[in-house]
Design a protein around this nucleic acid. Structure first.
Length: 295
DNA sequence: GTCCAGGATCGGA
DNA sequence: TCCGATCATGGA
């Protein structure tokens, strides 16, 4: 059963990879070109745990699906080549998704002024941008992420997309909208490995598609009010709420506290001003890097 | 077999 | 309010 579900998306992604590689080799398919800083990293940004539907190809490019479009992205120094999206708004859409307009160098500078111990870690994470993901996909993904590991989170999300079966432009599956998810049964969700999270996913889907949880309204609402709304939903706790606000609604002041970060801010970084930094979510990435590499 | 995964809920102190 | 047990699941 699980093999059937997993086979489809991976073969689709393989097809995309090959097509795009050929496109670049023969140079006969147009790519959207996006300028970037030389220290930007497409891999850190797409594969670093903010989003779960991107994969690295053997040639170093990254393939995935968002906004119902499947693309392959190459980074060559200060430019990104996006293959697979021929839409007129492709440049605007992918520049926006990758948040190319925010000045991350300035954010890093401000963060290091507040917490000089993070200088090296911040430099190592200088290439990361906070994505502007589709809110519902982010919410659903981070509900699935709780007490789970990244490879399994990826598998479950791919299986969910395959189960719902909506094809994206470019061949892979798009992430199902909240109505589609709400129409699933708990048995279907546990069948793809969601476990006890099945009921949480259904609860969130019902609230979102029923209109009683307006995700877009949370984008501009005072942050405490937004959190309060989210915490009312069964299955959304403080960590998932902040991950959603940061990665799904691009609220950069949010500071998701997982077990590692908690340990850091109760220990070595006790009293750090970064928790209240207006770009705390970016600084959180630096702290995580610091912990992982111990300076 | 046990432990863990970038948690959340629930019930009992 | 706080703390521990429990919740599915698969990989190490």
């Amino acid at each position: 059963m699980s093999n059937l579900l997993f086979a489809a998306p991976s073969s689709e992604i393989g097809a995309v990879q090959n097509d795009s590689f050929t496109d670049q080799e023969t140079n006969n398919a147009p790519a959207v070109v996006i300028d970037c800083r030389s220290d930007f990293s497409i891999k850190e940004t797409l594969l670093g745990g903010q989003a779960f539907r991107w994969r690295e190809n053997e040639d170093g490019s990254v393939s995935g699906t968002a906004f119902c479009r499947t693309v392959t992205i190459y980074q060559e120094g200060e430019r990104l080549l996006v293959y697979g999206d021929l839409s007129h708004d492709a440049h605007e859409l992918w520049s926006g998704y990758l948040d190319m307009s925010t000045d991350y160098e300035q954010i890093m500078h401000e963060a290091v002024l507040l917490e000089p111990r993070l200088e090296h870690a911040a430099r190592r994470r200088a290439g990361i941008h906070i994505l502007r993901q589709e809110p519902w996909e982010a919410l659903c993904s981070f509900i699935i992420s709780q007490n789970n590991n990244i490879p399994r989170i990826r598998r479950i999300i791919e299986a969910l997309c395959a189960l719902c079966g909506a094809e994206a432009q470019g061949g892979s599956y798009s992430f199902p909208d909240c109505h589609t998810v709400a129409s699933l049964t708990a048995e279907q969700l546990t069948g793809i490995g969601c476990g006890y999270r099945a009921d949480y996913i259904l609860a969130a889907a019902a609230l979102v598609c029923g209109g009683s949880l307006e995700l877009e309204a949370l984008r501009t609402m005072p942050i405490d009010a937004a959190r309060e709304q989210l915490l009312k939903v069964k299955g959304i706790g403080p960590k998932v709420a902040d991950c959603f606000l940061l990665y799904g609604l691009h609220r950069l002041e949010c500071f998701p506290k997982d077990v590692w970060i908690k340990r850091a801010i109760e220990g070595e970084f006790k009293g750090t001003p970064l928790q209240n930094f207006r770009y705390a979510g970016v600084a959180q990435q630096y702290i995580f890097e610091y912990i992982q590499h111990n300076n």
